[in-house]
Amino acid sequence: MALLEVKNLGISFGGLRAVNAFDIKIEKGQLYGLIGPNGAGKTTIFNLLTGVYKPDEGSVILDGVNITGKKTIEINKAGIARTFQNIRLFKDMSVLDNVKVGLHNHHVYSTVEGIFRLPRYYKVEKEMNEKAMELLRVFELDKEADTLAANLPYGKQRKLEIARALATNPKLLLLDEPAAGMNPNETQELMKTIRFVRDHFDMTILLIEHDMKLVSGICEKLTVLNFGEVLCQGETKEVLNHPEVITAYLGE
């Protein structure tokens, strides 16, 4: 059974049909790409999958659980984590604290235990620190643990966002244009990071990207979106050579 199975997903904003009859099936461990021209509805699909928008019709099944129309936090608890096209870090918090917020629902003690510093506070905080540092080491951010997130260079902010998403222990990771604003060297490094995340955490990844080098370099399967509808779906090589895709997206 597929990890994520989306059927006939659709949403309208007023008279605009933003997404129509969208189907996708992602197997566990896959690196899946979602591409399409600007305004094709890619980010809208991410917002539908993560509960930012409620779909007008269709269903989203994650690992056998129906999560259609659930709230964002419930969907996160069910196992979908995401990053954003325009980086959304907790800027005035340290790098370590950014990841620790991600661990919020997995390492629990009550507010009262926190205020009165009861034994469980120390125990759980220690676990959190260890877990968060482990994640930061994976992304080579451990030296910057005490830095404010806003003071990190751009590439590292992207990495931190992925680390924070992984801290919520998801089954599926959604990356929204992870290479946006990166130079070729940084993109190369990012490709390595994404592959590493998949192998090291045994993660399933769905990503939106415009950088064709990155897409053809790491994605195993692709879905091409145009005007809110699926244009083509399949193995990366086949899809990128499909004549309709070349016309619609890459230019003739």
Binding site: I73, N76, R88, F90, M93, D97, V101, N105
Partner: peptide, 18 residues
Amino acid sequence: RAVMSIRDNRIAAESIGI
């Protein structure tokens, strides 16, 4: 930390289950 994450970015806080 949860409170401060909401202050810094509400949408991101929600996306990680706060």
